[in-house]
Write a protein that binds this DNA or RNA. Structure first.
Lengths: 183, 183
DNA sequence: CCTCTGTTTCAGAAATTTCTGAAATCTCTG
DNA sequence: CAGAGATTTCAGAAATTTCTGAAACAGAGG
């Protein structure tokens, strides 16, 4: 398969960005290719479109599957696996955020709790900072859990509210008086 | 300087997580150490607390400065540089998010716009997907810009609203009728 | 304009990550 | 259950990133 110049440039960009996103070049390229391809692709096609080794493609696809970022399709009469990305971009974003949270936040939250459980270590400052950090992460993951439950419709609405958000928050002052003076 | 077991474990954890966060082990450790130290530290102290080379510390501090994650302090009569992290965790989070956006999102947004400017490439599907992705990123960065402007007080309030958020969003339906039927 | 204290740079060493080709494994199908 | 097609595994090669020690640099006093 030969890529159009547009596809080519898109794929190469994702490859380059890969390292900043915590994935490697090949994984970034495979994902980009699947993302802009209207039809599902099999490993062989990906391999020759990207000019990498067959085994590298295999590992990349495995990695993407572990991230839940690709869907597996089958074509009747063909026993090869075909891969695509979800049509719905919001679904992709949700997956991405969920996986990053799992890999980048959760282990640290566990560690902080573990450290607190070990009890007073005679280092008040460090202990206080760790507790503060844990609380902040808990607040953020709690908010995230809330967002995750919202259907896309409402999420989009929230995101497009713009400068009305500040006022909206204030409106809740009467509803939840105990929150008003939160430090 | 010798670390307490608590400090030690915290620092090592941040070192290990570093690679997942897109920084290297030493940078993670330096940051962790500054974070849990009540007093500003100089490069020499950091070097021997972590057991790395002086030059490695220098590069790590430079990296952290490029992320705006550390503050420089000076002690009268001492010409060495002393480093700390901001006391306010929210400030740290804001910086972190801003920098990650700058490194991980903005370049891609630029690239997508650039690709669109190159005009029709006769690949309708890819073009549509790229446009859709750009729109989504624009929506999210727009929302982010809004959040960034909120003072911490309101941000905390929003994050602690919990399940009331969904209802709150709906309440705006009357206020902005044109948004109601957004696709 | 030395010298002393502290910092940065840089070339190469060490470690880690990524990639490949070959072999092993898996799984339909006749 | 043999064989063909497809995928995965794996050990080593290649590439990249991180780290170090030595040298260069900076600037405040004397």
């Amino acid at each position: 398969m030969t890529l159009t110049p547009l596809q080519q440039e898109f794929v190469l960009h994702f490859g380059e960005m890969g390292s900043r996103w915590g994935i490697n070049r090949t994984v970034g390229q495979i994902y980009a290719l699947l993302f802009i391809s209207s039809e599902p692709l099999n490993a062989e096609t990906i391999t020759d479109a990207l000019g990498v080794s067959r085994s590298n493609t295999s590992m990349g696809l495995k990695e993407l599957q572990s991230w839940n970022l690709v869907r597996l399709k089958h074509i009747p009469g063909d026993r090869r696996d075909y891969f695509t990305t979800p049509d719905d971009l919001w679904e992709i974003v949700r997956t991405l955020v969920a996986e990053r949270k799992k890999r980048e936040i959760d282990p640290t939250l566990s560690k902080l709790r573990e450290l607190e459980l070990q009890g007073p270590a005679g280092d008040d400052y460090a202990e206080a900072r760790i507790a503060e950090l844990r609380e902040l992460i808990e607040m953020m993951t709690g908010f995230y859990a809330e967002m995750e439950r919202l259907e896309t419709e409402r999420l989009v609405k929230l995101m497009t509210l713009g400068s009305k958000i500040a006022g909206l928050i204030d409106k809740t002052a009467g509803m939840f008086p105990t929150l008003t003076n939160r430090k």
